[in-house]
Design a protein around this nucleic acid. Structure first.
Lengths: 341, 341
DNA sequence: GATGCATTGGAAAGCGCTTGCTGGGTATGC
DNA sequence: GCATACCCAGCAAGCGCTTTCCAATGCATC
């Protein structure tokens, strides 16, 4: 059935079908040139009989184009990124593209490494997900590698990082956080705390600032901010710090859901009753966390949809100027922030 | 700086350095043949100056080997799979390999499609994660495609599906669930319910059966099982069904954590007090769910570690017979299952 | 000073595929 | 009946790289 010693090649198929490789190629790929139906059928039959799988590398070389897109995320185990990855993967499927997963684990040099690897693969596109840090050197290095990638004919799309001169899906972090703050103020909260994430992470910063502005606009005192890692543990320790500070606070905004969960745990460790003693809100609306108790007030982001949109930018004809599409968050009030007083 | 019109090629570098492509290739890759240090330096400098990135496709063709491994999962948005993916990704990095992500969304035909795509890419290996269904036709088709893949020189490793004649990481689902059942019985629970997942999903079935055996061994009545999807919603509706049945039960085992979360939500919908009115346990120990209330008793699986082990099997020299490594779960008792009576 | 060997650069042959071009065969027009 | 046009199979040239083989050079040895 299958040729011994390595893979079945197109010339095996051609021989089996009694035609030239050129004809076999045209028959299988249906090029602009037509092949007589009977030959075409013979080729198809031969391919099936030999269980032929075209060598994608060779095709890529000959055609000068691959079917690969790279997905570069901070941490695939983080539900935020994995939801986006699911959207990208889904959309890639529909477009007949393959997804290369790259997990930078937050290490900037990894991002560069992957970008370079992707260029080496002549990937059709790279999708960069995750807030960029406000690190000048790294930004410059990424910009330069991105330029090289684009020069080599690849598209680059950024999700949630607006610093690069490429097609970008901007998440309206500040606006979403602001809306949340106003809503919470309206519900009677006035003394806010913010678990603000790392100060050099743009997403965290935007959410923090947006919330702060919203709170102040609504006539509240500026929230008290505590910085910490953008993770569950970061939320936990930031919350602990906030509680230790002895500040009077009736509502805490964690700049993402995962941090909010850490914060909730920290509160419980101290014996606080939630949501009675303290209201807590997050951001993202992570699916896996929709059932926690108390159910978490948050700003919902259409994460899966994001991936889809990114794919659309990737497959769209390249424009002259970088496109920018905006994605809004929706405030979702749940039990973790009951009306105050 | 960069050549106009497409990418920089090795011959560009060679020309720039004033050597032949052969020498340039040898200088950059350090082959068995040595290149005089000064030439080597000239080549390296030229490559840097032109920002050369070797065409991986061309390398793959010439060398007859790629650096790609495929990771085939059911749903990357599911924290179980994304944790494994993180482990794989990490290990792939260390081994200098690239990961192709394939999300089958549970559709068997997608699994085949990906396997074939991976063969077309001449991927070095495929890692199949996730319990196989007990569907004969599909199993046969996968077996055949797996054979083709291996014939083409690729390695195949399965995680948590023991049906394929390939290197496999077996998760001791039955043993883990059995240990959990015994432990719960020891704690005074005796009337068990099981939210059993789809009946044709091996993992679900093994956990269900293991739990059942454990319970019976401990002298309890056979648990009452309700089947449902392997998801949060599946757990929710199975739990609702179980509650509606009016059976007297004091402890429910959901065959995975995500279902357990759905079950908890269903209980709350009915106004049950957890864990007072009912004990609930899960399986997997999903990191994102470690902070839910009540904290969930479960069987911890070293998910990230699994990915790493899979990678080790991939990079290990191929043995004659399929290797089988076993991974145990650890029973973790938390608040959701207090001692009974 | 001639011969042998080690060392190393370069020419060239592929890897498997696509595609422009060539040319034989057939259909059509006068 | 012959010329023109058209159709389509196949030859061959690449795509960018690795690697084998050959040739040239330098050095040691006799």
């Amino acid at each position: 059935m299958v040729q011994s010693g390595g893979s079945v090649t197109l010339s095996d198929v051609a021989r089996e079908a009694g035609v030239s490789v050129a004809t076999a190629s045209r028959a299988l790929n249906g090029s602009s040139r037509t092949v007589r139906p009977d030959l075409s059928a013979r080729v198809a039959a031969a391919a099936r009989r030999l269980d032929y799988a075209p060598n994608a590398q060779a095709q890529a070389m000959a055609r000068g184009a691959t079917t690969m897109v790279g997905l570069i995320v901070h941490d695939i185990a983080d539900p935020y990124f994995s939801a986006i990855a699911a959207g990208v993967s889904r959309a890639a499927d529909d477009a007949g593209l393959l997804v290369m997963l790259s997990n930078t684990l937050g290490r900037p040099e990894q991002e560069l490494r992957y970008l370079k690897a992707l260029r080496a693969q002549r990937g059709r596109a790279a999708i960069l997900v995750g807030s960029q840090r406000t690190d000048r050197d790294h930004s410059a290095a990424v910009s330069s590698e991105v330029a090289a990638f684009e020069h080599a004919g690849g598209r680059v799309v950024a999700i949630s990082q607006a610093r690069l001169p490429v097609d970008t899906i901007v998440i309206e972090n500040a606006a979403g956080a602001g809306a949340l703050a106003r809503k919470l103020a309206e519900m009677g909260h006035s003394r806010f705390g913010v678990l603000a994430g790392p100060s050099d992470l743009l997403t965290a910063r935007d959410r923090h600032r947006g919330f702060q502005r919203g709170a102040v606009d609504a006539g509240c005192a500026p929230p008290i901010a505590v910085h910490g890692a953008f993770t569950r543990d970061g939320g936990h320790s930031a919350m602990a710090q906030l509680l230790d500070s002895g500040c009077q606070i009736d509502c805490v905004f964690a700049v993402n859901d995962v941090m909010a969960v850490g914060a909730i745990a920290a509160c419980r460790d101290r014996g606080l009753q939630l949501p009675k003693d303290l209201a807590i809100a997050g951001f993202d609306d992570i699916a896996t966390l929709r059932d926690i108790t108390p159910s978490l007030t948050t700003v919902r982001l259409p994460l899966t949809e994001l991936g889809k949109q990114a794919m659309e930018l990737v497959t769209a004809p390249p424009g002259t100027a970088p496109k920018r599409s905006r994605v809004k968050g929706t405030v979702v009030i749940r039990d973790s922030t009951p009306a105050h007083r």
